[in-house]
Amino acid sequence: MTEEEVLAEFRACHALLEGHFKLSSGRHSAHYLQCARVLMNAERAGRLARALVQKIPRELRTQIDKVVSPAMGGLIIGHEMGRTLEVDAMFVERPSGTFEFRRGFALKEGEKVLMCEDVVTTGLSGREAIEAINAAGGEVIAACALVDRSAGEVDMGVPFFPLVEINFPTYAPGEMPEELAALPVEKPGSRKA
């Protein structure tokens, strides 16, 4: 899928929002990609997952034993990636502030894991998920995301494969343009900042 085809999927379901958004990373943006909306249709989610799998080199794809995603944002795309790769998908969550496996999810020592996110801005959630996966005995061999909005600057510590790079500007709280700062702030993400 091209970048324009991916954006068309977001536009078709009103998942590309404009306004003033405080992202899970703590940064601010005039654009927000609501992946939950783009993934609410199972056919669309499957199409996006199949396209994302194709971004991962074959030699890595064939090694993946499990897909693990950070909750909440990565749940649906992680599940669809597991389906596409024909491996189990599970997630880590933050019941007390740090990612951990719950609900009976566990990894065998040395299992090869693909960490899957919806949107990456700074990579913090992904890196924290990778730490939890490694601590649980897994070996993260690659990371992926539907959208990389880091302008290609994110470092996940493993090979990283986004479906598309979308470089809407983001701003630290003290760096926002006046016109953005003047708008009311929405906080649609899943992490408390």
Rank of each mutant, 00 (worst) to 15 (best):
A182Q: 11
R58H: 15
D118M: 02
A142W: 11
P184Q: 03
P95E: 09
E175A: 15
L146P: 04
L107I: 07
L60W: 08
G74A: 02
L85P: 02
A151Q: 14
E86V: 01
P95T: 08
M72K: 14
M72C: 14
R58F: 14
L52M: 13
E165M: 13
R103A: 03
A143T: 04
G110L: 07
E175Y: 04
I141E: 02
E43G: 12
K66T: 02
V120E: 05
A181F: 11
S69V: 00
A181L: 13
L7A: 00
A193L: 15
T121I: 08
A106C: 10
K22W: 02
E18H: 15
F168W: 13
R102F: 02
E186D: 09
E139T: 14
E165G: 14
T62F: 06
P57C: 10
G74M: 02
A42L: 13
M81E: 05
E100V: 13
L85Q: 01
A51M: 04
A136P: 00
P184W: 06
V6S: 02
A136F: 06
G78C: 03
S96Y: 13
V53L: 11
R37G: 02
L107M: 08
K187P: 00
M176A: 13
D65G: 03
H28K: 07
V185S: 11
T121W: 06
E109V: 10
E9P: 01
A51C: 05
A142K: 12
V154N: 01
R102H: 10
M115E: 12
V53M: 06
G174K: 14
E153N: 15
L17N: 02
T121N: 14
L23A: 12
P95Q: 07
P162L: 07
S150L: 06
F161N: 07
P184V: 04
A71F: 05
Y32A: 09
C116K: 00
P95A: 08
T122E: 06
P184R: 05
M81I: 04
N167P: 03
V38Y: 09
A89R: 03
E131C: 00
L60A: 07
C13H: 10
A42C: 09
T98C: 09
I130G: 05
G157A: 12
S29A: 14
V53G: 02
P162A: 07
T84Q: 13
S25Q: 11
G138Q: 08
V68K: 01
R11E: 14
V119H: 05
V158Q: 13
R27H: 11
C116T: 14
G104K: 06
A151G: 15
A106M: 11
S69N: 02
L180W: 10
R27Y: 08
F99K: 03
S69T: 00
I166S: 02
I130H: 03
A182L: 07
A172T: 00
G74F: 05
F10V: 11
V119Q: 06
V67G: 09
V140Y: 03
G82D: 01
A142H: 12
E9V: 12
E165H: 12
A8M: 03
I166C: 08
I133G: 04
H31M: 13
R44K: 11
T98N: 12
L33T: 10
G78F: 03
H31W: 15
F91G: 01
R127S: 02
Q34D: 15
A106V: 10
V67L: 10
P57A: 10
F91L: 05
